[in-house]
């Protein structure tokens, strides 16, 4: 894949998101994020709980707009869009929420949930809801008669598939998935990822895929970003993840449990706590937990720099293996 020729569908430039809390406290959830999302590919994002992944997606979706920065989608800065233009824009970007239970209206039946975006954009008639809903459910491996159910009468993984079916309904250009497969068993997960890949090949969908399962995301994503405390600390190709060089990415890789009990004994626990995003340290965000820390790490913040083609690291002392 000649990367310099891949066209980007979205450019996120200098995106910062701050939350202003009581008592003049400021919480920086995303700190000057820059990302290029290649068209028709999968972009994976991993990182510790609370590092700002969902916040980033919510900014892209304009659910909770960015404090600063630009999001160029198909050549336009969508942060500046308003009214009908903004609404029409979201025909082309769909989000699968991290917690579908909280995102669904509990009084709506599954068939109405999955077809709601189509109705909203007048793409189907009310009389077509039943048929379309069944088609979407079938696609995500759910029994068609679930169309008549309410979301609370389903299991966690079944609800998650309803959320995926709903996002696929509009055939958007970008589908952003926030932990969209974490409640699925690995076999259904495998089927869903295969479906997503098939649709990507047929329809050119672009995926932004947030996922705690490093193995899964590395096997599915073409490009990946690793986040820590609101910062991107490493960018790497999915198939190169095991050669990551940032100490935090290495710590992630060392924490994965395996079905091989021998390997599980080697699982290392990363010591220390994530600093509060209310109080981001000067210098490297990872310094208080990093085994490679030197004096400079507490004074200067390492910049995200390309160390080889398609691989950038924000660390003064990247690990070489």
């Amino acid at each position: 894949m000649p990367d310099e020729n891949t066209e980007n569908i979205m450019e996120i430039k200098n995106l910062t998101k701050k939350f202003f809390l009581d008592g003049d406290k400021v919480l920086t959830a995303c700190d000057n994020i820059n990302l290029s999302i290649p068209r028709g590919k999968t972009f994976g994002i991993v990182g510790e709980s609370g590092c700002g992944k969902s916040t980033l997606l919510k900014a892209i979706m304009n659910i909770d707009p960015a404090t600063e920065g630009e999001i160029i989608f198909n050549g336009r800065d969508i942060v500046k869009l308003k009214g009908e233009e903004l609404r029409q824009n979201y025909r082309h970007i769909q989000l699968v929420f991290q917690d579908p239970t909280a995102a669904f209206n509990p009084k709506m039946k599954v068939k109405d949930i999955v077809t709601e975006p189509l109705i909203n954009f007048n793409l189907i008639k009310k009389s077509e809801v039943n048929e379309k809903a069944r088609e979407l459910l079938k696609q995500t491996e759910l029994p068609e008669d679930f169309a008549e159910r309410y979301p609370h009468n389903m299991s966690g993984g079944q609800r998650q598939r309803v959320a995926i079916a709903r996002a696929l309904a509009l055939e958007p250009e970008i589908i952003a998935c926030d932990e969209a497969t974490s409640a699925l068993d690995v076999s259904v997960q495998d089927t869903i990822i295969k479906l997503l890949v098939k649709l990507q090949k047929e329809k050119g969908f672009t995926y932004i895929f947030i996922c705690h399962d490093l193995a899964l995301v590395s096997l599915f994503a073409h490009k990946m970003a690793v986040m820590y405390l609101g910062n991107i600390v490493e960018k790497i190709d999915g198939d190169k993840l095991q050669y990551a060089k940032h100490p935090y990415t290495r710590a992630l890789l060392n924490s994965v449990f395996s079905i091989d009990s021998g390997k599980n004994k080697e699982v290392k626990v990363l010591e220390g706590e994530i600093p509060s995003p209310l109080n981001i340290p000067v210098g490297c965000p990872f310094q208080n937990r990093c085994a490679y820390k030197k004096e400079i790490c507490a004074k200067e913040k390492p910049k995200l720099e390309e160390i080889e083609p398609n691989h950038s690291v924000a660390c003064f002392f990247p690990i070489n293996n």
């Binding site: 709980s49 974490s182 409640a183 705690h212 992630l252 924490s255 994965v256 449990f257 290392k268």
Partner: peptide
């Protein structure tokens, strides 16, 4: 019930241990 599926792997390892 899925005590660690919402967590990143370093936190997961911490909690399991």
């Amino acid at each position: 019930d899925e005590p660690t599926s919402a967590l990143d792997v370093t936190t997961q390892a911490q909690i399991v241990k």
